[in-house]
Design a protein around this nucleic acid. Structure first.
Lengths: 153, 153
DNA sequence: CTGTAATCGTTACAAGTGCGAACGATTATC
DNA sequence: GATAATCGTTCGCACTTGTAACGATTACAG
C-alpha cells in the first residue's frame, strides 16, 4: 500500500476555510443575507460612490452577477444607486442608513463567529494565529476584505 | 460613516482557504484531476474495500454524486470496483497500482503547493501555524482528510 | 419456504445557478 | 456631427447537483 501523507498546512487551511465560510453563511442567513451580499455591502461602505464596474473588478466577479446582488440589496433599502450627474451612464453606489445599521449587526455576527471558531485557543495563541495568517495572506497577494469565493456563492 | 471592522481571523481563514483550494485545483488539473477526485482516491487508498455508500457518508456527498466520480477514476484505471462475493449488492472500492502511483504524484504536488503557500514563513513559523490550525480543526470537529467543499466541486 | 421489506448502486429528471454575449442608453473621440 | 467606446442590464445557454424512482440483491417474518 502506498504511503498516505498526512495532510499539509495548505489542506488544513482549505478545510478550515470552507468550514468557516459555511458557518458564517449559516449565521448571516439569519439576517437574510448571503456571504456575497455582505461582502458587497461592506465594499460599498468602505468606498462609497464607486461604480458597479469598479466594484465588480474589485470583488472579482462579472458585472452581470453584480447586478442581481445590487438589486437585492437595493430592494431592501440597504444601499442605493445614485445616478452620476456628470456621467449619467454610471451608477454610484452608496449605503443607506439602514445599510450601515445592518453592517453593524454583521460585525457583531462576525465577532461571535470568530469567537466560536477559535474557542480552542487562548488569547495569545489567537493573536499568533492571526498574525501568521495575515502575513501569508499578504505574501500571497490577497486583497484585504475580498473573498475569492465571492465568485461562486 | 459606520465603522468598518478589520477582518477577523475567521475571515482570513476563509479567504486563505479559498485561495489555497483554487491554487490546488489548478495544480491537480495538470494531472487531469479535480479536487474531489483526489479526495476520493485518497479516501479509497486510506481504507480500501469500503462500499460506495460508506464513502459517500464519509465524504459527505450524496451517493449519486459519488457514482460519477468513481466512473471517472475507474475509466482511467486508477481504482476498481470489486464485487463483494458475500453481498453482491456491494461494490468494494480498491485503488489500482496505477492509482497508487498517481497518489504519489498528488503527494508531490501537495508538498509543492504547501511550500508555495507558506513561502512567507520560516520553518519555525510554519510549524507553529500548522499546530494551531490542527488544534482548531480538531476542536471544530473536522474529520482529518475530508474537505467540506467536496460536496461542491 | 415464500413473500415482503430493506439495502445497494444506478439512472432519469428537474431545478437552480452563473457566465458570456448581445442590447439600449450615454458619452468620448475625431 | 458621426462613429466608436463604455456602462448597466437582460437574455439564453450550459453546467451542475440533489431528489426520486428503478432493477438487483439480500434480510426478515411468518
Amino acid at each position: 500500500m502506498a504511503t498516505i501523507p498526512r495532510a499539509g498546512s495548505a489542506f488544513l487551511l482549505a478545510q478550515l476555510g470552507a468550514h468557516a465560510a459555511a458557518r458564517f453563511a449559516e449565521r448571516v442567513a439569519e439576517l437574510d443575507l448571503t456571504p456575497p451580499q455582505t461582502g458587497l455591502l461592506r465594499a460599498v461602505a468602505t468606498g462609497p460612490g464607486r461604480s458597479q464596474q469598479e466594484l465588480a473588478g474589485y470583488l472579482g466577479m462579472p458585472p452581470s452577477r453584480l447586478v442581481a446582488l445590487v438589486d437585492g440589496l437595493a430592494a431592501r433599502g440597504l444601499l442605493e444607486r445614485r445616478r452620476n450627474p456628470d456621467d449619467r451612464r454610471l451608477h454610484a453606489l452608496h449605503p443607506t442608513a439602514e445599510g450601515e445599521r445592518m453592517l453593524g449587526r454583521i460585525g457583531e455576527v462576525a465577532r461571535a463567529h470568530d469567537d466560536e471558531l477559535l474557542a480552542g485557543l487562548d488569547a495569545t495563541e489567537r493573536e499568533t494565529l492571526r498574525e501568521l495568517l495575515a502575513r501569508v495572506a499578504g505574501q500571497q497577494g490577497l486583497t484585504p476584505g475580498v473573498h475569492p469565493g465571492y465568485r461562486r456563492v
